[in-house]
């Protein structure tokens, strides 16, 4: 099988800080990681390759630094890595991003053959939009299978696939055709620890780097800020509420006294709630 995996290098959101004084994002020193949701697709891709043979190509669009994440993907066992990087892509929204990535996938297909599956992350942890995967699928006419919790059956030679897909009230079992764009649910698998051979290979492997022209993108009007229909007009810190919390129980003798003070305060502010809770408790 030929599988492409789209990944994104994201700041480790746990370590992002807002400057206490200027309220701006402090990016300095924030480590970057592969978007965690992408790893479920990568692992699924590696498993399919191990089962059916073929190769896994990881790709991303981003600054030159993003090659670190691609190299990391190679240490997990991916066979090839491609980075699409160009200043024309700066400021891309999801529509412009899916345009660039769809073109990247086209170009990669010309070089290494058409993929059976393109895996994307369910969403990223920095953007949280969940729009780029569907955008790519739409642009390339791939079957769209999002929120997949497992691939039950797959037959590359006949181009058929059966998956379980997480829906709002249950699980859909879907039968469909390849080529498909799949996003995997978190927890559907666990990224492997690559073998020492993978680590060594990744350390000296070449990450293929393309700029817009090399990826065959000539219409720069679809790229970056110019190609983004959405415009960010304002970025701001959430307004702090005028009033801070009223502190309860200061100087109280023991936890029980604090608890009683607190309950009195709660019901003073929510008088109807007490009766409702009572009824609820009576039903128990």
């Amino acid at each position: 099988m030929r599988i492409f995996v789209c990944i994104k290098q994201v700041p480790d959101s746990a370590q992002i800080r807002v400057h206490p004084v200027t309220n701006t994002i402090m990016r300095q020193g924030v480590p970057t990681i592969i978007n965690p949701y992408d790893l479920f697709g990568l692992e699924e891709a590696l498993r399919l390759r191990d089962r059916f043979g073929g190769e896994v190509t990881v790709m991303t669009m981003g600054p030159p630094m993003a090659s670190d994440s691609l190299r990391k993907a190679l240490t997990y066992g991916a066979d090839r890595a491609v980075l699409l990087t160009d200043r024309f892509f700066a400021g891309s929204d999801t529509l412009a991003t899916s345009y660039a990535l769809a073109n990247l996938i086209q170009k990669a297909s010309e070089n290494w053959g058409q993929p059976d599956i393109v895996f994307c992350g369910k969403q990223t942890i920095d953007g949280d939009t969940a729009q780029v995967g569907p955008g790519i699928a739409r642009r390339l006419g791939l079957t769209q299978l999002t929120y997949v919790s497992s691939i039950d059956e797959i037959d590359p030679s006949h181009g058929t696939i059966t998956v379980r897909r997480r829906a709002d009230h249950g699980v859909q079992v879907l039968q469909s055709r390849l080529p498909a764009m799949i996003t995997m649910m978190e927890g559907s698998n666990e990224i492997r620890r690559g073998r020492i051979e993978d680590a060594l290979r990744a350390a000296s492997a070449e990450v293929v780097q393309w700029n817009a022209a090399a990826a065959g993108i000539t219409d720069l009007g679809h790229c970056g800020l110019r190609g983004s229909p959405t415009v960010v007009k304002k970025v701001f810190a959430p307004p702090s509420r005028e009033e801070k919390a009223t502190l309860v129980g200061e100087g109280a003798a023991n936890p029980a006294a604090v608890a009683n003070d607190l309950i009195t305060q709660i019901f003073a502010r929510q008088p109807v709630l007490e009766g409702d809770l009572m009824h609820a408790a009576a039903r128990h």
Binding site: P11, S13, V18, V231, K233, K234, F236, A237, P238
Partner: peptide, 10 residues
């Protein structure tokens, strides 16, 4: 930015 700021988009 992971929920640390808000932005308004048009």
């Amino acid at each position: 930015f992971g929920g640390s700021l808000l932005c308004t988009i048009h």
